[in-house]
Design a protein around this nucleic acid. Structure first.
Length: 710
DNA sequence: AGCACGCCGACT
DNA sequence: GTCGGCGTGCTC
């Protein structure tokens, strides 16, 4: 015993003469001995006045570590009984501490945050309970709905409940909490369908929401700026039923468009915007206004997917293919998946909308879980600009074009477009890593064993990026060619040269570092990377040029085709209906053809069928498990994976220059229906491993639905 | 992860 | 006998 313990001796202990360390030790040993005996009744340490009613609080401690992912019982002192309601934030002592008896309380461990989940009469714990240290605030923030959602998300992603709650609940702010939230406004009237009358099933979807129904749909939005107003109308229709609504958008720009549309439709005060841009106090104030029910509708970016909207009638996600819908913190939940869970557990409507269509959304349609909201072909043709393609073989043959690095059709389109308005030029971002593909027909080179992407770690050898199997005799399955190619052209330079070619016209750029919101309806060249395209004032761009399709299509990613199409469609949607679009990409490729026909949903459906056949996500569920060799091997041996799980790899992970090797990675794939079992097995294995304690260098990283499958 | 426990070797 | 090494196990 140290002298520190001496100073902690209880004042007025009644044994002033005894050696304090030894007395403390004896007391502690007695207490521990008692603690070991099984007991039915809750006990706390002598001297603590226990709450008369329900003296046990089941607490979720705010520690993300998986092996502590469980509830802990604490004694409720009488003076905290009133405030210690289920759902409030508390502080508790947690951790193997010096178990001194002090003032009749057990002390030790550090004070950490937690939430009361339940009040109970008794405990299953065979030991003396520590007491709640204090109730942080009387605000009931962890509602049963939110707890159930967080649990479902934690299970889905093999993560801990505490980690999910960290994403779901903004940090408390006392000042925001002290202010009362305004009284809620009465439900607004049912809106008229507006642009929804362009979709066969649109008006019925609105009517169902307004009548209290829970319809589920995948919405392939028509090109043009109408989508924000249409999204506002489904929210208004849901509010009209007396229920709440939630819409999640990929970025602040798109969120503010819907915000403006909803304000135009319903005025201020009926909705809150939850985006990362607000500071902590405002953020918590907005969250509280939603939680307290004074605001029934939420528009926000991905953290808003957990927004505690009262009596939820509709959840909506816009552009679910955008990568920012995937959270970047453990356990990496995806907005669309979380909203699906909410739709089921809270019995509300669901809408996944976008000008494009993801394979996951196509799966919701294919399974019958959601219905399509799409315009007929004639309407699509009337709203979409004309799309033409220039293959780069043609580019290669066209001498003049090669000199200017631009095919003549593209040149003419830009020149003609600039006569009447702005012209958008979309160029891929730097750092796009192309994958290997057939030199002749551009079919991606895949492993013959598992259909993973082939990679060339050095110039001589080919191997599979998933299972590591070397490939020594590749030939193209499609055309029989034996030659591969991988190449990215200097896209930015092309755009610069384009600017020089039209010296009389201003060139504006929009990219990741500075994103333009809008450009005026005047002739200008607007060079933008995908996702950063400014909206053109008025009816839209006169023309668009989509450059370096090859680079977009050959990224080493399962989603390359889907993603390229999504980005092309998004850019082409900003072009007015009588405008022209030229895409520089091989016209026989499926995403290119889908763009020309303006058929993103058809493309996604075909992609889905193909992935089902090849055993790819989202038809199969995949998990990535990464770590250092021996640790990874031990983890996989210990994990009780479902019998139908297939382990691909391991393959070495690409290391950062100068950093120690990140180890190796396996992909684990299970057929439909075994996803939950896989997540559970990985979570259990991880928990068991962490409970034993491992060196930091031996950490195993588990990720369900890894985003970067080659 | 912490942090304290326990059971072994060198010291006043 | 006592101080302290870090192996191992628990945290309501």
């Amino acid at each position: 015993m140290s002298s520190e313990n001496e100073s902690r001796q209880r004042p007025g202990d009644g044994s002033p003469g005894g050696p304090p360390e030894q007395l403390a030790l004896i007391r502690e040993m007695v207490a521990e001995a008692k603690a070991k005996a099984p007991k039915a009744k809750p006990r706390t340490w002598r001297g603590a006045a226990l709450a008369k009613d329900l003296p046990v609080a089941r607490v979720l401690v705010n520690k993300g570590v998986l092996h502590l992912d469980q509830l802990w019982d604490y004694a409720v002192p009488e003076e905290l009984s009133e405030a210690a309601r289920p759902g409030v934030r508390v502080r508790v002592r947690f951790g193997a501490g010096s178990h001194h008896v002090h003032g009749g309380r057990r002390e030790g461990g550090r004070l950490i945050d937690g939430f009361i989940v339940e009040r109970r009469a008794d405990t299953d714990y065979h030991g003396a309970l520590a007491a709640l240290a204090h109730v942080v605030s009387p605000e009931v923030v962890l509602t049963p709905e939110l707890l159930a959602l967080a649990r479902a998300v934690a299970d889905r992603y093999a993560g801990s409940l505490a980690d999910v709650l960290q994403l779901a609940l903004p940090p408390r702010n006392a000042r925001a909490e002290a202010k009362p939230s305004p009284a809620p406004l009465p439900p607004p009237p049912v809106p008229d369908p507006g642009g929804w009358s362009r979709y066969a099933a649109g008006p019925a979807f609105l009517r169902s929401l307004a009548a209290g129904g829970a319809p589920r749909a995948v919405w392939t939005a028509l090109p043009g700026p109408g989508w924000a107003d249409e999204l506002a109308r489904v929210i208004a229709a849901t509010l009209a039923s007396g229920r709440g609504a939630l819409a999640v958008l990929p970025d602040g720009r798109s969120a503010s468009r819907v915000d403006a549309a909803l304000t135009a439709l319903l005025g201020e005060g009926r909705h809150a915007t939850l985006t990362a841009e607000s500071g902590p106090e405002k953020r918590y104030r907005q969250w509280l206004a939603v939680h307290r029910g004074s605001v029934r509708a939420v528009i926000g970016t991905r953290a808003a997917m957990f927004a505690p909207v009262r009596d939820l009638g509709l959840v909506a996600v816009w552009d679910d293919g955008d990568s920012s819908h995937s959270d970047d913190r453990a356990p990496f939940p995806h907005v669309r998946e979380v909203l699906e869970l909410r739709s089921v557990s809270e019995g509300c409507g669901f809408l996944a909308g976008g000008t494009g269509c993801t394979v996951e959304a196509a799966q919701l349609l294919a399974s019958g879980w959601a219905r399509p909201l799409a315009a007929d072909r004639e309407t699509v043709r009337a709203c979409a600009p004309r799309i033409r393609t220039v293959g780069d073989e043609l580019l290669a043959r066209d001498e003049a074009a090669r000199a200017a690095r631009l095919p003549s059709l593209a040149w003419e389109t830009v020149r003609d477009g600039l006569k009447t308005g702005p012209v958008l030029v979309q160029v891929p971002r730097r750092g796009y890593a192309p994958r290997l593909a057939c030199e002749r027909c551009r079919t991606p080179a895949r492993c013959r064993a598992c259909a993973g992407p082939l990679e060339a770690p050095d110039t001589s050898a080919l191997q599979c990026g998933w299972c590591g199997r070397p490939e020594t005799a590749w030939h193209c399955e499609e055309c029989g060619s034996f030659r591969l190619r991988a190449q990215v052209v200097g896209a930015r330079r092309t755009a610069e040269e384009l600017g020089r070619a039209f010296p009389a016209v201003p060139v504006r750029t929009s990219g990741r570092d500075h994103v333009l919101e809008e450009v005026p309806d005047r002739p200008a060249l607007v060079v933008s990377t995908p996702g950063a395209e400014p909206v053109a004032a008025g009816a839209g761009y006169a023309a668009a040029l989509l450059l370096d399709g090859w680079a977009m299509l050959t990224r080493p990613d399962l989603r390359a085709g889907e993603d390229a199409l999504r980005r092309w469609i998004a850019a082409a949607s900003l072009v007015r209906a009588d405008g022209q679009v030229v895409v520089v990409a091989e016209p026989t490729l499926r995403p290119v053809q889908a763009l020309v026909r303006w058929d993103p949903a058809g493309h996604a459906a075909r992609e889905l069928a193909e992935r089902a056949q090849l055993g790819f996500p989202p038809v199969s569920r995949m998990a990535a498990v990464a770590g250092r060799g021996e640790a990874l091997e031990a983890f996989l041996d210990a994990a009780e994976l479902p019998p139908d799980a297939e382990v691909l790899g391991p393959v070495p992970l690409p290391g950062r220059r100068g950093a120690p090797s990140p180890g190796e990675r396996v992909l684990i794939r299970v057929p439909p229906g075994s996803g939950a079992a896989l997540a559970a097995a990985l979570k259990a294995a991880q928990a068991a491993r962490l409970a034993r304690g491992v060196a930091p260098g031996d950490a195993i990283r588990v990720r369900i639905d890894p985003p970067d499958i080659g």
